[in-house]
């Protein structure tokens, strides 16, 4: 199970995507500015509230990011262990442990954005953030990634199945990597060229029809909270 958009009518689902983006960035800035036990305790409450406000659970969000765990769990051990006496430096392990924990709670807030924001709204927010043709190209690209990722994953999985069926697992690692990657690239480029022809045939234009973004009264608490976090972060750094 990965962290993905879930249709719902939670408090976060009703927010403008730009408010949620602002809140995420402000939260990350505050987490970096206040990496102390007390600061992270306050921010943890906020992170859990965000997950609940998006209609999710902490367990579900944490499980979605389980692949980050080896990095984050190993870091305090690597930082704390030294070669030679005293063998373990608790202060170093604690500093890195707090830094690891900070990354976890930033990921929780990111999970609440992903759970509550459909791709079309994210794309509209991105194109609002990056104006002009670069923003539109980025928006189109992002929409195509969401659309084509499952197809390309299926292409790669079928190639791997074919390799296993022919006892390909006995070949060297770089040889297997080469076979999977060649098949993946050839199919991806083939799909891209067919897509480009189809888009041109349908008068593909720079002016897209995206959902209109509108701030409403429900955005006020989120924007105020994000502003407060940003100000707090600036005060800590200054």
């Amino acid at each position: 199970m990965t962290v993905a958009y879930v249709p719902d009518d939670s408090r976060f689902h009703r927010l403008d995507p730009r408010s949620k983006l602002f809140l995420q960035v402000a939260f990350a800035a505050a987490a970096y500015a206040y990496t102390t036990p007390r600061g992270l305790a306050v921010l943890s409450v906020l992170a859990v509230s965000c997950v609940w406000a998006a209609g999710g659970t902490v367990r579900e969000a944490a499980w979605g990011y389980r692949w980050s765990a080896p990095f984050l769990l190993a870091a305090p051990v690597v930082a704390g262990v030294t070669v030679g006496p005293p063998w373990i430096r608790a202060a170093d392990a604690l500093t890195t442990g707090l830094a690891s924990y900070r990354v976890w709670i930033v990921l929780l807030v990111a999970a609440s954005f992903v759970r509550s924001t459909p791709v079309r709204e994210s794309r509209a927010a991105l194109q609002w953030l990056v104006p002009g043709r670069p923003g539109r190209a980025l928006g189109i690209g992002v929409a195509l990634v969401f659309r084509f990722l499952p197809l390309l994953r299926h292409d790669l999985a079928s190639t791997r199945a074919a390799i296993h069926a022919r006892c390909g697992a006995e070949r060297s690692v770089h040889h297997r990597m080469r076979i999977v990657a060649v098949a993946g690239i050839a199919r991806a480029i083939g799909r891209a060229d067919r897509l480009a022809t189809a888009l041109t045939a349908r008068c593909f234009a720079w002016n897209p029809t995206l959902p209109p973004l509108r701030f409403s009264r429900t955005d006020v608490p989120a924007v105020l909270l994000a502003t407060g976090l940003t100000v707090a972060a600036i005060i800590a750094v200054a």
Binding site: A4, Y65, V103, V106, L108, L138, V145
Partner: peptide, 28 residues
């Protein structure tokens, strides 16, 4: 650049099929 933007907006494209803006300020 498109890959990073898509991942930041929640496409499950980062290591282990994760996504979200948190990864762009996280350990990796």
């Amino acid at each position: 650049g498109i890959y990073l933007a898509a991942g930041a907006l929640g496409a499950p494209v980062f290591s282990g099929g994760a996504g979200g803006l948190g990864h762009l300020v996280g350990a990796t």
